[in-house]
Structure formats: structure tokens, C-alpha cells
Computed example of a mutant assay.
Amino acid sequence: MRSDTASGDHLRLAKRASGLLVVLTVPIVVAAGLYASVSGVVGSLVGVSFVALLFGASSASLVWAIDHAPGLAVAVMAGGAFARLAIYAAVLVSLSHATWLHRPSLAMATVVATTVMLAAEMVWIARTPRLFHVDAGAARPTAHAHPSPLASGAPTPDAMPQNGSRSL
């Protein structure tokens, strides 16, 4: 069962994703409208809406995995990313004959929104280890566990002989 902290993390990630999609939608739709008029706006809105739908489904599956099968959460996250890319490609191909929208606007909106959302999702998830039941405070400090070779008196690259000469 999910803790209150983890529940707050899920909600925070959902709010961030929603906010980012809203912020992304404005310049994407404006650019598509300037480039291809109404059909560009329609195409870009379809693309961004499709990205929102698939990111929502992926987030829901990740939350389910974290709550019910935490050991599978990373696999679900990675599988979800690959599944989204395959679904995007299939839908873009299936819409390639649609005359009611501007296909380049649809494709570019989908590519831009997907790329930005995947990058943001990876950063947000990496910065929230509690989602995977990792206690970041319990990690041992690796800097003290493995002393630097420089601390033991080993020669630095500056002190190494130059031009093939050997010093004893």
C-alpha cells in the first residue's frame, strides 16, 4: 500500500506533467496555426492530446506497479516508454491519409511533446527515489568508502614524465 508521502509524490508528478503539457501546447499550437492555419491547429491539438492520453495511461500503470509490484516498476516504466513510441508511430501512420488535419503539424506536435515529456519524466522520476521505495538517506556515502588514489600519494598526471622520458 502506498504511503502518504508516496501518494504526494504521485500527485506532484501528475501536476508537473499536466502543467508542462499546458505550457507546451501553447507554442506548438501557435506555431502550427501560423504555418498551416486551421488544419495545423487541429493537427497539433490532436498530437498533443494524444501525447497527454498516453502519458496519463503510462503514469497510471507506473503508479499501479509501484503500489502492487514494486520490483516491476522500472520494467513497467521502460516498457511504457517503448510502448508509447510504438503506439505513436502506428497512429501517425494510420492518420497519414486524413485530409481534415495537417499531417506535418500532427507529427511535429507529437514528436516535440513526446521528446520533452519523456525527458522531463525521466528527470522527475530520477529525483523522486521514494516512488521506488528507495530511502535516499540510507545510502552509504561512497566518497568515504573508496578513498581517492590521490590521497594515498599516487602520482598525479601532472607529475608523470613527459615526452617518453623515464624518471626513477
Rank of each mutant, 00 (worst) to 15 (best):
M77V: 01
G47P: 12
A109M: 03
G79A: 04
T114A: 05
M77K: 12
H133S: 13
G43P: 12
W124F: 13
H102F: 06
A32M: 02
A31L: 08
I87P: 01
V93L: 11
A98W: 01
I87R: 05
L53I: 08
A83Y: 02
L131Q: 07
S49G: 15
V93Y: 00
G43V: 00
I125S: 11
A36G: 01
A78W: 03
Y35G: 07
G71A: 10
P70N: 10
A57T: 03
W64Q: 13
V41A: 10
S105V: 00
A73M: 06
T114I: 04
S61M: 14
H102Q: 13
V30L: 14
L85R: 01
A73I: 00
R140W: 03
A31H: 07
S105P: 12
T25C: 11
A78P: 01
H102S: 15
H97N: 15
A109P: 08
F55W: 06
A98N: 15
L72E: 08
Y88E: 15
R84L: 01
S37R: 12
A126E: 03
A136M: 09
S44T: 08
T99G: 14
S49P: 13
V63P: 09
S105L: 00
S96Q: 13
A36C: 02
M77P: 05
V93P: 10
A78C: 05
I125M: 13
S61L: 14
A98G: 14
L118T: 11
I125N: 08
L118Q: 04
L34T: 07
L45H: 12
R84Y: 04
L85G: 09
G71T: 09
T110G: 07
S105D: 03
I125W: 10
T25V: 06
I28M: 06
G79L: 04
H133K: 13
A57H: 03
G43H: 03
A119M: 10
V46D: 02
A78V: 14
A31W: 12
R103F: 05
L95P: 06
D135F: 04
A73N: 07
I125G: 06
A119G: 14
M108G: 09
H97K: 15
R103D: 11
L24H: 00
L34M: 11
A86Y: 01
V51S: 02
A98T: 15
E121N: 09
T114D: 10
I66G: 11
L95Y: 05
L118Y: 08
V23S: 06
P70T: 06
A78S: 08
R140K: 14
S61N: 09
R127G: 10
T110L: 03
A138H: 03
L24K: 01
L72S: 13
S49A: 14
V41D: 00
S39V: 07
V112E: 01
R127N: 11
L118C: 09
V23F: 10
A31C: 02
E121I: 01
V46R: 00
R84W: 00
A107W: 00
V42W: 13
V116D: 01
R127C: 11
T114F: 04
I66W: 05
M122C: 12
R103N: 13
L24C: 01
S39R: 15
V23P: 02
S59G: 08
V116T: 03
